[in-house]
Design a protein around this nucleic acid. Structure first.
Lengths: 218, 218
DNA sequence: TAGATTGTTAATCGATTAACAATC
DNA sequence: TAGATTGTTAATCGATTAACAATC
């Protein structure tokens, strides 16, 4: 059994790995009832020790010696940790292919993320449906966010040159959380949470690793 | 001046930050000739010490005391480190919105990444152009990769259930580098480099941070 | 010149790994 | 029961930060 007092600060890396463990668990075959820290580690590419250390921070995660962790319980615990069981309302600015890709992303279908609306400035897109989501005129974005307080997160999928002015507007309307896919650094007040998704960075990392691989082969 | 002998192993984090520095540099105003480690650090959200430590691994990066780093030189050095100056041929499997988003991603327009072709199994898409790139029938993927040896990287943008079978086929045809956007863990031989882009993981991290923010406010 | 910023070493901090008693 | 795996502490490893002489 776990100690009850346990409020150490966990690192960003722990959070990232927990999300990864969750993605692994949801792709597991149904018949699998228990999983050990060793198995999780193998699938996630980390040591069993690291898996157990990550779990140590959370009282809701509990395994059984000799047996491992009950898969359904572990999944549920992770869903709670990430609050995936409560609805999250989101708006996407930019109804291009990137915005559509996010709205249609597979993992979200298993969560309670609700995409309320697209916003775009392209007259050919305004009024249409993409992935079943209505596209509104971007000039109504500020009013919409002010009137629909359930919306907590805004996703930025516009070209980098337009990103900052839209973010200013979004911040003005009271939104505190921004998920930014536009490859540019945003200036925001310190109480705003911005999570960057740098697709380019991930590709550069790939190119770099390629170089080192080639050296190893020679 | 830098010491010439310098072959310490740099971490994954260093590579990631270097890519981030590069993205920052390309969004800088033209008139800016020099930049200090402090300024870079502020923009990237790391300490000046970390910036200088990262640069320390690379002899091609050199600054001037009191002045800082020459922006154009620094950009060029980073382009060399990531081999962005030589062409990289890439094929995208899955011509859905995600695949299209990658093909149209802004940062790549400044690099020499060439998207040769989409592959898809949807008859309505085969033969069409998306973002100026031709969509071929997925049944010709293996032959295409074997005949066009210039293609070094395959991007996976298909639903998770189809991902593994396509990856098997790609590996069979001799490809060594895979960039996977499908939210599933892939099984590949040990000599294959797979870079995962978990969009979902990034969103979960955001949800988690939101929770801790709320606590701080209360 | 004087002082700001680099390049680099040393000190600190944090994260990962190892080890092992508890236990199912 | 015996042995495999957890929960947890301690040891190790690596990454970040601090400090400062060199220098432009």
């Amino acid at each position: 059994m776990k100690n009850t007092k346990r409020e150490k600060k966990f690192s960003n890396k722990t959070i990232e790995r927990l999300a990864l463990y969750y993605e692994i668990l949801i792709t597991l075959p149904f018949k699998k009832k228990y999983i050990s820290s060793e198995e999780i580690g193998n699938l996630a590419g980390v040591s069993p020790s690291t898996v157990r250390q990550d779990f140590l921070y959370f009282n809701e995660i509990e395994g059984k010696a000799k047996i491992g962790y009950e898969v359904t319980k572990l999944k549920e615990a992770l869903r709670n940790i990430f609050k995936l069981n409560s609805k999250t309302h989101v708006v996407i600015v930019g109804a291009g292919s990137l915005g559509q890709a996010i709205a249609g992303y597979d993992s979200f279908k298993k969560s309670k993320v609700v995409f309320d609306s697209f916003f775009d400035n392209n007259p050919n897109k305004i009024g249409r449906l993409f992935k079943g989501i209505f596209v509104r005129d971007i000039k109504y974005l500020k009013d919409y966010l002010k009137e629909n307080r359930r919306i907590k997160i805004v996703v930025i999928c516009v070209p980098p040159k337009e990103a900052q002015s839209i973010v200013n507007l979004v911040v003005d309307s009271g939104i505190k959380i921004i998920w930014n896919f536009s490859p540019t650094i945003l200036k925001v007040p310190s109480d705003i949470l911005v999570e960057y998704e740098h697709i380019g960075v991930s590709f550069y990392r790939l190119l770099f690793k390629r170089k080192t691989i080639k050296k190893e082969i020679k």
